[in-house]
Amino acid sequence: MKSAKFLAFVGLAACLASATASAKEWKTVRFGTDATYAPFESVNPKGDIVGFEVDYGNALCARMKVTCVWQNQDWDGVVPALLSSKFDVIFSSMNITAERAKRILFSDMYYATAPIFATQAAIKSDDVTPAALAGKAIGAQSSTVFANYIDQRYKASEIKLYPGGDEPFIDLASGRLDYVIGDILVAQKFIEKNPGCCRIVTELKRTPDTFGPGVGAAFRPEDTDLKDMFNKAIAELDADGTYKKIEAQYFKTDIRGK
């Protein structure tokens, strides 16, 4: 009798979960994104996820004739969440690297921007070599290519890793950090909202081993059909000028990369 009860409990719990077959036609594609990364993706006062990648992703869906669902996901958990089917694609400014490609499948690159160092407005030096930054506090979002970059090269600095994409900048503005490494457009957006807090020191070269060629959508290894659908749609939106149109709403410069 007790075990029957236990089974009933398990059954009830299972009812909450929706079981689906693994091979399927893609009618709905669930997008996972870490919406702490304005202007690419952030949450507005209504609670919607908005930004360049949301508009672009929706345009891709329209082209692929699928329904898009957007889900917020903390960046640290974005790959495990993809692999455990909490959503079907990471569409969240994820840089394509060889290390990541071992676990997940990337689409073609759809944008490439420069990594930068930013610092407090009061710090005048433009020297960001590891020797110059020894003993200084450098912040980055954890599990990012930026975090890997400083972790490998800036052994003598105090490295602080944050769960969200804009939290390092918030702590740079408050003076907890001396430097932040991150994306140039995210930094510009933050400085635009908090004028005088900080300045961009220097752009870094996109070294292929650390930063990779640019940003792509990421899928579970078995979903090659979904990847092909995305690549086709990416090429089509380039060709018909949709990409340019969306880009112009957000940025003054061309971020498409090649």
Binding site: A14, L16, A17, S18, A19, T20, A21, S22, A23, Q71, Q73, G77, P80, A81, L83, S84, S85, K86
Partner: peptide
Amino acid sequence: YFGLQSLLNKLGQITGEAWRIELNAFVA
């Protein structure tokens, strides 16, 4: 949150079953 789902998937793989239980964030 992460382990339960991975374990379910792994069990599915090992036993060769073609099912996949998906939990959304709220349910998880």
